[in-house]
Amino acid sequence: MTDVQPGKFHPQAALKGYALNRMCFTLNSAESRAAFIADPDGYCARFGLNDEEVAAVRSRDKKRLFAAGGNMYFLAKLDRVPKPQGAR
């Protein structure tokens, strides 16, 4: 895929990252944040994130999260969850 610039329309990119964004959207609730913190990979699995998305979530790296189809308005919810040790 060509480079995707956030904010611009790319039909192929629009198909990416739905599960990742869905998972991040749930982090609005304290209960979900607690479940995520207790078991990040298990929580991601509940929403069917693929390997690229799970790796991006683990890294907390914006470039990887964007590349996986993450949308900033939903990634902001992930930003509000304390980072695990070792993540950037």
Binding site: G7, K8, M72
Partner: peptide
């Protein structure tokens, strides 16, 4: 255009 605003003001400049 929307894309011009992204270039001139950033994605959230929209």
């Amino acid at each position: 255009t929307n894309d011009e605003i992204v270039d001139l003001a950033g994605a959230q400049g929209l």
